[in-house]
Structures are given as C-alpha cells and as structure tokens.
Design a protein around this nucleic acid. Structure first.
Lengths: 342, 342
DNA sequence: CTGAAAGCGCTAACAC
DNA sequence: GTGTTAGCGCTTTCAG
C-alpha cells in the first residue's frame, strides 16, 4: 500500500474520424463510408487508397455515431437470475460465444430473482437500445413482458412465460422429472420425496408433473407430505430433509429439482448416518459439476446448457435480422446420467 | 414443435424525441434538455410543463445520441477468464451490483484464457466506447495492456499485471499460500504436494512463494517432485495425484491452489483408499461452494470475492469521474477456513 | 464511380 | 430563464 495520491488521467487520444481520412485521400466522406462498409460503388483504386490510410492512421470507426444513424447497437441484453449458478453461467457463455463472432456484445443483468430489479433492468435495456434480449424470465406477469416484446426481439430461455407468440427455448422438464422419478422407482423406491424451488416457474411445474405421472404410472400413491418447497440452496434442503427424518416420516428416495438441492439432501443423510444408495436413493437435476464430483457422485438429469444457449442465440439473431423463424418453442431433450446415488 | 413459419416483426415504435416535446410545450429543445438533465436555468413552470408532457407521451431519452455528444456511454467492460467459475462469477456479480445503481451497465467478455480472444475483446471494447474496463488480465505482455490503459481507465482485479502505474485489486496470495502450507505443517505434514495452475500468473506466483517460505520457516526441505502443474480442472488434478501415488512418491499433505484442484485430489485419494485427513491432509484455495459442500468438506483459504469486486468497481468509477485515487494496489486479506480435510 | 448535403437525437456555448 | 446554433461521426439519398 502506498499512501501517495496520484491523479489518474487518460490521454486525450483525439481520435480521428472519417472526415480526416476523406480529406487525406482526396475523396468524400461518403466514399470512405462506402469502402469501410463494403457497400460497392467505388473503384479498386480508391478502395486501396482509403484502406491504406485507415491502416496507417489507425482509424477506428465510432460505433456510437454509427448506431445513431443505423439504429442498431450490435449489443444484446441477457437478464438472468443468478450468474453465480454454474447452470446459468454455462448458458450465458454459450450465448456470448455465439454472438461475439457476429459482432455483437452482451450486456449481463443479474436479478437474483428480484422482480423489482427485473423491472429496472428492462427499462435500462430499452434505454441502452439493445438490439435484442435473452430473457430468463422470472417475474410474474405484470404486462411488462408483452410491453418489451413489442419493442425489441426477445427470446425466453429455460423458463417459459407461457405467453402466446413468445419465442422460447427450454429443456424437456416434464420428461426429466419423469425419468428421475422412474429411475428411483425402478431402483425400488416407494416413498419418494421431491425437493422443489419455492418460486414456481415452468421448469418446476414440468418436473413436478413428471414426478406425479411417474408415480401414477407405477401405481405408487402420492403423499403430499413428501413435497418439500424451499429456496434453492444446499443448506435449505439439508434442513428440510433433517426435519423430515426427525419427524419420523419414512422415505427411501429423493428427487431433487436441482443438483445443489441434492447435495444438501446428501449432507442431511450423512449426518443421520443413512446410507446412500443402500437406504435412500437420490436423483438431482441439471448435471452441473458438483453432481459429478460430489461423493457419492449424484445421478442426475442432464440439461444441454450449451445448446440451450446456442439455439436461443441463433433464434434471437434471426429475429434481429428479420428472418422468419420456424419454431416458436424449442424443447431440448434431457437425459438420465446414472451415477452413485441410485 | 409447430411446423408453422411465422414472420416475427417488431412494431415500429416511432419513438418521439426531445424536439416533439419541445414543440408541444412551446419551448426550445435546449430548455427541454436542461430540465431533463436538471442543469438549472429554467423556471418551475416550464419544468412542470415539460415533465408532464414527457410523462404523458412516454418520452425516453435516446442514449445513443446522448453518448455521441457527451462521449460517455455509461457502460463498462469486464474481461474475465471463465464466467463459469464461481469465484469469477461472484466478483462479476459484485461489480454489476455496484455499477447498476450508478447508471452503468456491464459488458461481459469471456476469454477462456485465450490470448487471441483477449486481443479481439480489447478491440471490441474500444470500438464500443466503454467508459472503463475491469480486467482479469491473462495475456502475456505484448504492449496491448499499456495501449488500452492510455485510452480508457482500467483496473486489474485478481491478477496483477505488474505494470508500473497500473491500478490493481488483488487478494493476499502470498499469505494465503503461507497459511495453507503452515496449516498442513502444523497438522504434522512433512511431504507437501503443491497443485498449481500451469498458466503462470501473479496469483500462482504469490501462493507458491508462500508455500516455499512456509516450508523454509519450519525447516522442511523442498522437494521439486512434489510440485505439480496442470490446467485447473478436477480431473487433471485427480490424474496427477494418482500418478504420484502409482510412482510411489510419498506425501502426506496437499496444498491445492484452487478448491476444484483439491476436489480432484480428494477423488484420487478416495480411489486409492487413502484416508483424509488421517493419512493425507488437504487445503484448497478460494472458498467456493464446493469446498463447503464436498465430503469431506475442504479446509481452504477464503478470498473475499464481493469486496474484490466492489473495490475494483469503486476505483474504476473514481477514475471515470476523474477523481484522484489514493492507492494503486489494494491487497485484500485472506483467511484460513478450517474444515474436515486437515 | 463519386460528391454534396441532410440529418440521426442530443448537449453546450453563447447571446439575449 | 430561454432560444439559437453548431456540431458529435456517421450513413444515405440524390444528382451527376
């Protein structure tokens, strides 16, 4: 640590504009603009001249000015609940990797599932004039969603807002829930707990439906005591399972709607010296790293995060480019990954 | 899936400008601009009139145009190695939470430690005219760093580029490495493996130095066979430790420069039926979730990600605002978190 | 193939 | 207190 107080200042890099290079090349700004954007209507000679001086002077186009004219900012927004969650981070990464080579950059907004923030972010995105939005929708319908959709292209990922005409990319949560539950049943479980996120959204609804239908199919009675709602957080699920055990409610399987919820369950089981998978079996959801590296490793439902992101990105780009899009609701398949907890 | 092909189109929300509302209010655009920016020199009467019609017509200022005039975009860039890594994600989150209330939005660029990408991102950031940059510096010096610093304010986080005059916020990696190693020594270890990231940067250098100095202080000879370099990845460290065991090289402690590296080590140890912490003890670094929820839970060195992000953000904002800043190199304290692996 | 000129929406002197 | 005016740097008709 130095106690010195220093004034940081940035050199006024008086950046040169199209005008200067036009003057130097002895052509008009219009011509320079044309060669820069490869819009035709210029000779090879002028092209070379322009390009060479652009290179020499290190000219960089001012995208602000360009945006003002073209009404395109070449940036998109992402509104996401929790960037800290590996599942979301993977999708964001795929989106960024897709868009950057297309010349788009990505504004990231983290809601932490807070609707107030979500509102503010939507406003900000509009003010910043993004060309499109990828939306991990979280808020309840208050008309905002349709409002923003009227103004800019938006594609919903992961969570389905169930609005007519909305473009959405999601995993097959229903089948995921079904497969997870079926795996437990086939391994011999008859009293299957389900650990859910307390915030109801389409992913939870789908997984729960799959759970119920699997129970049904195999003739296992549904027990409402085994439905546990909580905020997604390993400690919350640990406590919930501990409570269940302490109340003496019997169960032999757990379907956790999230891998982290499964981790918490495992902690509770370990604390009570309950053997996994011998006494209780566990299935998670997402297939994030923790499920692979936890001990025991967790049987889970894989979601294809990369494709989720890529497809959403591709659809958004198509919308921005005014292309027609074939499907408005893409549902990606999921897959059971069998590991040590079942 | 519907086979229908639908043309998505966005309604041309012919947005109104300052001009319209000036006309309606019977004042000039300058006046409107003044009340909108609260720049004084207008009467309460006109203020009310303007504000009311702004409200009524739902006028929104066009930030592109504004930026073109003011040369401020109110956006900052973040260049980060891996958004998927909870450690980095936490810092990004803190930065976003700090900046949004200040009216800034955040462009995120993921390098995946790829220098080629880093170069491109730097160019893009410049073209997008961001007001500042927070930089998890990864590339080796090729002059680019100093070049960008001349153009926009940048603060380096996590990794110290060791350039004179650079503003950097980092954890006390040296002390972290020392504490981790000391913890192992005090628990009785004498043959301590260190698991390092193969990409040398200031964090690794610092932690390694701490390791060596702790060894020295306690009179334990350094054994180069116990220094293992790899890409940060649980599988890589698992394999490295397995190899060590299979080669018959004895060790009783492991200092992993990252929690995920520690996780891999634990897997290798489990595979070979080596008891932790009885036969081998392990210390990680970062204190990300996995260290808390792994089984056994991992003793680790905590880095204060939130403060790392907040301080970096505050310093960048100060630089943007042209304020003088007191310290150019903030080093945040770290802390040993004792858990089950030691 | 090229240039002149208008203007995107806003801010900031400067004059009154 | 308020209006006039001149651009910011670029694209894009329209004429030639």
């Amino acid at each position: 640590m130095t106690g010195a107080t220093e004034k940081i200042k940035i050199k006024g890099t008086k950046s040169i504009s199209i005008k200067e290079i036009a003057k130097i090349c002895g052509v008009s700004t219009a011509t320079v603009s044309r060669v820069l954007n490869d819009n035709g209507r210029f000779s090879d000679e002028t092209k070379n001249k322009v390009l060479r001086t652009v290179e020499k002077l290190g000219y960089k186009t001012n995208n602000i000015a360009k945006s003002l004219r073209t009404k395109k900012t070449r940036s998109i927004g992402i509104i996401v609940p929790d960037i800290t969650n590996e599942y979301f981070a993977n999708i964001i990464l795929a989106i960024q990797n897709f868009f950057f080579p297309q010349g788009y950059s990505v504004l990231v907004y983290n809601t932490n599932e807070d609707q107030g923030k979500e509102d503010l972010y939507l406003k900000d995105l509009e003010a910043k004039c993004v060309d499109g939005l990828i939306y991990f929708f979280c808020m309840e319908d208050r008309g905002q969603i349709d409002a923003i959709r009227k103004k800019i292209p938006v594609v919903f990922v992961d969570r389905n807002p169930n609005r007519k005409g909305a473009v959405v990319v999601e995993s097959d949560n229903y089948t995921g829930g079904f497969l997870a539950t079926e795996e437990l049943i086939k391994s011999g479980c008859r009293n299957i707990v389900i650990l859910r996120h307390i915030l109801t959204n389409s992913t939870i609804v789908g997984r729960y439906k799959g759970y119920r239908d699997a129970l049904n199919k195999y003739g296992i009675p549904f027990n409402p005591d085994l439905v546990l709602d909580m905020y997604v957080n390993a400690n919350a699920s640990k406590e919930a399972i501990c409570r269940l055990i302490e109340c003496g409610i019997a169960f032999d399987g757990i379907f956790a709607c999230t891998d982290w919820l499964a981790v918490g369950a495992l902690m509770a089981l370990r604390k009570h010296n309950i053997k996994v998978p011998q006494q209780v079996k566990v299935v998670g959801f997402d297939n994030v790293s923790i499920s692979e590296y936890s001990s025991p490793s967790i049987t889970t439902i894989n979601q294809d995060k990369t494709r989720l992101g890529e497809i959403a990105a591709q659809m958004l780009l198509d919308m921005i480019d005014g292309k027609s899009i074939d499907e408005k609701n893409i549902i990606l398949p999921v897959e059971l990954i069998k590991r040590e907890t079942t």
